[in-house]
Design a protein around this nucleic acid. Structure first.
Lengths: 346, 346
DNA sequence: AGGTCCACTGACAACGGTTTCATTGGGAGC
DNA sequence: GCTCCCAATGAAACCGTTGTCAGTGGACCT
């Protein structure tokens, strides 16, 4: 089913069929349309790509699609591609930089652009992409010196700050953090925000309360157990992402620790089931779908020759605290007068 | 960066470079390898596709990637493609058959095969795919008369039966079901299993307890509210998928209904947060990642000319009940002696 | 009627690989 | 030293589409 068969049936040349399909005016549109319909002709994507150099496909690389956050981001992206005649080539990096490099190199020749939620923040940006001049947009990865890429971020520092202020406002002073890997933007920045907010209020943190996880549920679980085994456990825990929050909550359940009675828990990133958990989780929420939408818009814009040389953009989205029921004043303390806590619904 | 430049630099013809890259023995492998490395050459996927007619890409169409079940299935698929030098073109159908048709038609010319979790069970199978002879594997859609496709399913009937037996075993007799759409395989079969299991045990069901939802959280929520407003509400609810279970649980929370004290809840499909919910959810669990793995294996096998004409396969995976804490004997009743309930962990 | 203009047309050459086919050259065997 | 054989080679065709280019013919004007 090639354009030649259509041309033959319509009694014109392939070039004319091609012109008709691209919207140019031709002598006998009806004949061609009829031939196309009867034959059920669709142009070969491969031939078109070869000729035009465009695949109308966007590569999307995320650490793990089963993480609800990334699923939401990808969904946002797809809502954009859908209306713009683009499609998504999806790959997981499994949080491995090697795997990520491999995937990126593979994609370089198959897509018009890439959106990447990087496994790590290593400075050497994917060379294969740079060479092949495939536009790249980062999700959750801050721009580095010399980067010529766009990025869509959330205000990680402010999110951590909000969490800390919230806990301090409740009267906590022994606050622990289960951070992400320091070589990732969210891992690094959320920790920075956490420490800075504590320091700004003159509250110290014990080194054994400042932990580094890997953003996976199991590390949230393990590190929470280690916090519980301390001679002086914290009265509140801040977890740097959704999966580690879940791990922490599981550990607290398993150890029969009352939340928030004995330990308060606040995590970065909300979950669909957040309100239904035991207890309902107080979290730092960010616009996930929107982050995907913006990243895709940024990328498609850069694909437009008109904007291809614009300076890289860095979009930072705000975050907000959702006050549910996993945080409360520490045992034997009461809310300090200056900032009363808002009543929480049910 | 074409094969011609590599050939020129290595002092051979493009044909020889091509042969070298495809593993054939060549007079001067080192020279070619050097040229390839120095130039950073990667073959053009479009040109290869055009020539070979293969894209080495698999189209995956799911109703909604943010549903944890589909995310897990896709992850399983990707674990297979990764090792087989295939990649995944992902699209959401948003549970719309029109959208699904559109996506499928688009994919027909861009992929070697398609895995589809269909929005509905309509008999007219995607024509565009049939015409272009793109192999298709169904997820969660039973084969129909004349289908020449493979399918990977779970035992929906047995899952519903297990749920019913479990509730009956606890002493429930007023059991409601929030089913999925009857034009989907899981919607239809789970309802069939539910009704059959009740009938087999001689238990009736009031028509107003046999509800039809749309697999979305909101319908689980709404239908649960409607059940609660009945003069004789059920003592147990069976929800046909994860999202509707969540919706039901939310409604029960909002209406301050004690679960499982006043109403027991059991749903199809487990959730990562299942054990952490209030209460921990009793569910019918199925192997999600494995379902994706098997579907992809089936598809790649059919891509092999050797097996292309094998008769369609239909793989049915078993399901099992995970007994947590959202189900209990109905108020004022006790567990009937014949089948004692197993102690549940914490 | 003849000339000019212009919208439309088809032949043809790409795009970047792979495959066929005839040819080359070196080694083995006598 | 000559023949035979076969592995390796390059030229060329091809995959299906689109862009270029030099027409072609009809409409309109004088």
């Amino acid at each position: 089913m090639t354009i030649h068969e259509v041309a033959a049936r319509a009694g014109v040349s392939p070039a004319t069929v091609s012109r008709f399909l691209r919207g140019q005016s031709v002598r006998s549109p009806e004949a061609i349309r009829a031939a196309v319909d009867e034959l059920g002709y669709w142009p070969s994507a491969a031939a078109q790509s070869l000729k035009s150099g465009r695949t109308h496909t966007i590569g999307v690389v995320v650490p793990d699609i089963t993480n609800p956050y990334f699923a939401a981001v990808v969904k946002g992206m797809e809502s954009v591609t859908r209306t713009e005649n683009y499609r998504i080539l999806l790959a997981n990096s499994d949080e491995s930089s090697e795997r990520e490099d491999h995937v990126l190199a593979d994609m370089a020749r198959r897509v018009d652009g890439v959106i990447l939620a990087p496994a790590t923040e290593r400075d050497q940006t994917p060379l294969k992409l740079r060479d092949s001049k495939v536009p790249l947009v980062f999700i959750d990865r801050d721009l580095m010196e010399g980067d010529e890429f766009d990025a869509v971020l959330v205000d990680n520092v402010d999110g951590a700050r909000q969490a800390v202020e919230h806990l301090l406002g409740l009267g906590h002073t022994r606050i622990a953090a289960i951070n992400g890997p320091p070589d990732t933007t969210p891992g690094r920045r959320r920790r920075e925000g956490f420490l800075a907010a504590l320091t700004a209020r003159g509250v110290g943190i014990a080194p054994e309360h400042d932990l580094i996880g890997d953003f996976r549920e199991s590390s949230g679980y393990q590190l929470t157990l280690s916090l519980l085994s301390l001679p002086e456990p914290p009265t509140a825990i801040f977890t740097a992402n959704n999966l580690m929050t879940l791990g922490a909550l599981k550990a607290l359940h398993d150890m029969r620790v009352d939340v928030p009675g004995r330990i308060s828990l606040i995590g970065f990133d909300d979950l669909d089931t957040g309100p239904l958990l035991r207890p309902p989780l107080t979290v730092i929420d960010r616009p996930m779908v929107e982050q995907g939408v913006l990243a895709m818009r940024l990328l498609l814009r850069r694909l437009d020759p008109q904007y291809v040389d614009d300076i890289p953009r860095r979009i930072v989205l705000g975050v907000k605290l959702i006050d549910r029921a996993s945080t409360a004043p520490p045992k034997g303390q009461h809310v300090p007068p200056p900032r009363a806590r808002k009543a929480r619904p049910a």
